[in-house]
Simulated scan of single mutants.
Amino acid sequence: MERTSPPTGRRAASLLLGLVAIAGCGGGEAAGRMKEAAPAVPVLKDGLVELPPGYAERAGIGIAPARYEDVTPLVHVTGVLEFDALRLAAVGSRIAGRVAEVEVIEGSKVEAGQVLGTIVSAELGTAQADIAAVEARVLAAQRDVARKRSLLAEGITSQRELDLAISAAAIAEAQLRAARQRVTALAGSRGSKALGVAELRSPIAGDVVGVHVSRGQAVVPSHTAFMIADPRTLWVRLAVFEGELLHVQVGDPVELSPTTGSAETFAGVVEFVSVALDPMTRSAEVRVVVDNLAGKLRAGQTVQANIRPASAQRRAVVVPRQAVLQIDGTPTVFVAQTERSFESRQVALGVGDFERVEIQQGLAADEQVVVSGVFALKSELYR
């Protein structure tokens, strides 16, 4: 059998070179294919971002013209609803006594003048009894005056006696007025007919939002027994910072929405703007009155308030807010020079709302700016 001799060193070297050449040819073709498949990317040229064909569509880049139109600043603040202080009443006893009856519970709806509860008081009973005694003295004095007039006409008594009787009657009548006034001060103008019983009545129509007494409880004049509120209007006190307070005025419209995520909004109006700033927070109170006839809002509820200062409304060059980027701490927009080239331009911002912002410097009306895909351009600019 013929044996095959192993390759010599020269033959092995030739074989190795051939394999390398073959591998090199294959690698070059693969590299060429990879180079052809590599996508084109934006480049920065002469201060402009140049986009390759089709890149704007892939990156979702959209442009729109800057508009010259009316813009109103928006002051966004969070606050808490509370009862209107002008529609809130605290009802308590004017005298010391003991609670006899409680006629309402928390949540009851009451009318003005409705009895909320009754209090038994010895002091009131004494004052009411004094009225009866003084009334008797007044009646006796008036009869004495009539009798003296008759006797004077018959010449039996003197004018001095009649004058003394008239004076005594006047003193008795003054004492009666004082006694009645004392009872009114103790029990109110519509006191109970029962001796020593004071009725606590609601001064306004509304809802009972607090009951702080129970039957048999001892009370004193400083104790608040009931709280009544009319929830048809509410207040919200807002802390507006010094820089935004300049434009806010009484009468400005306010849009409020609950912080719970509800899409429903409610209308309000600025009723008061404080004349003093809080030295710690550099803010001032702005009080807003909210219409709550539908009863959908509650005191204590947190709301977001958007104040639109009418006095600051003006015409200006505006762009959508999403068109403005912060680059190195400076507001910047991308301005279209051609369909595929964009200039990065610094601008000065003015007032605005959630959707639009005023461009005070750096952009003219009708210039085309990038309004979508701006982050894609920024990332390519600072690749």
Rank of each mutant, 00 (worst) to 15 (best):
Leu124His: 04
Ala146Gln: 02
Gly210Arg: 00
Ser189Asp: 14
Arg160Glu: 14
Val219Gln: 03
Arg232Cys: 04
Val138Thr: 15
Arg180Met: 12
Asp163His: 04
Ser189Ala: 15
Ser189Lys: 13
Ala229Gly: 10
Thr233Val: 09
Val209Ala: 08
Leu139Phe: 03
Gln181Asn: 13
Leu176Ile: 01
Trp235Pro: 04
Thr233Met: 12
Leu139Cys: 01
Ala133Leu: 12
Ala127Pro: 06
Leu152Ile: 01
Ala205Lys: 09
Ile204Lys: 12
Gln142Phe: 02
Gly188Ala: 11
Glu161Asn: 06
Pro221Glu: 08
Ala218Val: 03
Ser150Ile: 05
Ala198Ile: 02
Arg180Lys: 14
Gln142Ser: 10
Arg137Tyr: 02
Arg177Leu: 11
Asp207Leu: 13
Ile131Ala: 08
Arg147Trp: 03
Ala132Val: 10
Arg149Glu: 13
Ala168Glu: 11
Ala218Asp: 00
Ile204Cys: 05
Leu151Cys: 02
Asp230Glu: 07
Gly216Asn: 11
Ala218Trp: 01
Ala133Asn: 10
Gly196Asp: 02
Glu199Phe: 05
Arg190Pro: 02
Leu238Phe: 10
Arg190Asp: 11
Met227Asn: 05
Leu124Thr: 10
Pro203Ser: 13
Ile171Asp: 15
Gln175Ala: 15
Gln175His: 12
Ala172Asp: 09
Ala140Ser: 15
Ile131Phe: 08
Val197Asn: 11
Leu200Ala: 03
Gln217Val: 05
Ala129Gln: 14
Val236Gly: 14
Lys193Asn: 12
Arg237Thr: 13
Ile166Glu: 15
Ala185Tyr: 03
Arg201Gly: 03
Gln181His: 07
Ile131Trp: 07
Ser214Asp: 04
Gln142Val: 07
Gln181Val: 11
Thr184Tyr: 13
Thr157Val: 10
Ala153Thr: 01
Ala132Trp: 00
Met227Ile: 06
Asp163Thr: 08
Ile166His: 07
Val213Arg: 07
Val211Gly: 09
Arg190Ala: 12
Asp230Asn: 15
Ala185His: 09
Val211Asp: 06
Arg232Tyr: 08
Arg149Asn: 04
Val197Lys: 10
Asp144Ile: 00
Ala153His: 06
Ala198Gln: 15
Thr157Tyr: 06
Thr184Ser: 14
Ser222Asp: 14
Asp230Leu: 12
Leu238Arg: 10
Ser189Asn: 10
Leu139Ala: 14
Ala170Leu: 06
Ala136Trp: 01
Gly191Glu: 07
Ala178Met: 10
Thr233Phe: 07
Ala170Ser: 08
Met227Cys: 04
Ala132Leu: 06
Gln175Tyr: 07
Ala179Ser: 15
Ala187Leu: 09
Gln181Pro: 01
Arg190Gly: 11
Ala129Asp: 06
Ala187Asn: 11
Ala136Ser: 15
Leu164Glu: 13
Arg137Thr: 06
Ser150Glu: 08
Ala127Tyr: 00
Asp130Lys: 12
Ala129Val: 03
Gln175Val: 04
Glu154Thr: 02
Ala133Val: 08
Glu173Trp: 01
Ala153Cys: 03
Ala165Asn: 00
Gln142Leu: 07
Gln128Pro: 05
Ala146Asp: 00
Val219His: 08
Arg147Ser: 05
Ala146Leu: 02
Asp144Trp: 01
Arg182Leu: 14
